[in-house]
């Protein structure tokens, strides 16, 4: 029993220590990725959205975002919205 209890005490220290280390790593990895992405691949989507908005002359960004994302899903990300005509 005392041997098992010793093992459990050991696991309390090791287990909590490991979980804290891993979640520290999660923070570290997350921050590193955010810094890397901010520096090397800052948002490209916004530019496309602005272009399309200005081309189409639609003022509501929500409507534009809905149309652009619908086209992206249907075409598997390959299609681009260049014009919208009301009939």
């Amino acid at each position: 029993m005392s041997e098992n209890f010793e093992l459990a005490l050991q696991l309390l220290g090791i287990g909590m220590g490991t979980v804290f280390i891993i979640l520290f790593l999660v923070i570290l990895i997350g921050n590193t990725i955010i810094k890397f992405v901010n520096r090397f691949i800052p948002e490209a989507q916004k530019v496309i959205r602005q272009n399309v908005t200005s081309v189409l002359g639609i003022t509501s960004p929500e409507k534009m975002a809905a149309i652009v994302s619908a086209v992206q899903i249907v075409t598997g990300g390959k299609g681009k919205v260049t014009s919208i005509n009301k009939e």
Partner: peptide
Amino acid sequence: IKNIKAVKIAF
């Protein structure tokens, strides 16, 4: 976060 999509893919 300037490009959340890229971060979410890399993470």
